[in-house]
Amino acid sequence: MVVICGGSAWEADTAPDLTDALRQSLDNGCVVAAICGGTVALANAGLLDGVRHTSNGADYLPSLSKAYRGIATYVDQPQALRDGQIITAPAPAPASFAYEVLAAAGLPEDAARQVKDMLRQEHQR
């Protein structure tokens, strides 16, 4: 499992290029997950081309990644999305992102759902 946390650092020209490491991880059978700005690293590596994915809005990845060719499989939704070995999420989806990551890592579904429900409580008033 490779998890790329979000943040504005991924939007900068000085963001690290993880292409080789991410592709090797996928080739080795790892699940690769990214939330918020971390999805830019996946776009730059070409990992979102041909898989359903989400991020911080339909214009976000095309505006930040010259390598991004995945707009045809972009899904505009507020929750995390898993397609095969790729998990993506927009910034305001930490609960569903945590659930997808934990489930993909092998945590039993009931336990992963409990974590999701606990995290979701943080956003309720």
Score class of each variant (00 low, 15 high):
L107N: 00
A33Y: 02
D27F: 05
V32P: 00
I4K: 03
V3C: 02
V32Q: 10
G6F: 01
K66H: 12
P78D: 00
A72Y: 08
D110Y: 02
D49F: 07
R69T: 14
V101Y: 04
R69C: 13
L47E: 06
S25M: 01
G84M: 00
K116L: 04
D13G: 15
P94K: 07
P92K: 05
A67F: 02
V75Y: 01
G6T: 10
A98H: 03
A15D: 09
Y68D: 12
L42S: 09
L64W: 05
Q24E: 15
D13A: 15
A89T: 05
L42V: 05
S55I: 00
V2Y: 09
Q79D: 14
Q79C: 10
L22I: 05
H53Y: 13
A41E: 02
Y60D: 09
R69Q: 15
A9Y: 05
V3L: 09
R69G: 07
G6C: 08
G38M: 04
D117L: 14
G37D: 07
I35W: 11
G57H: 06
R52G: 06
Q124H: 11
L64H: 13
L81G: 05
Q77A: 12
N28E: 13
A58Y: 07
A104V: 08
A34V: 03
G70S: 10
D49K: 06
A33K: 01
V115Q: 04
A72S: 12
L48N: 07
A98I: 06
D59M: 11
V51A: 07
G70H: 12
D20M: 12
N56T: 10
D59T: 12
V31W: 02
P16Y: 00
L81A: 12
Q121T: 10
N28I: 03
G106R: 01
S25C: 01
L107P: 12
A80Y: 08
P108D: 14
V3T: 04
H123P: 01
Q124V: 13
D27L: 12
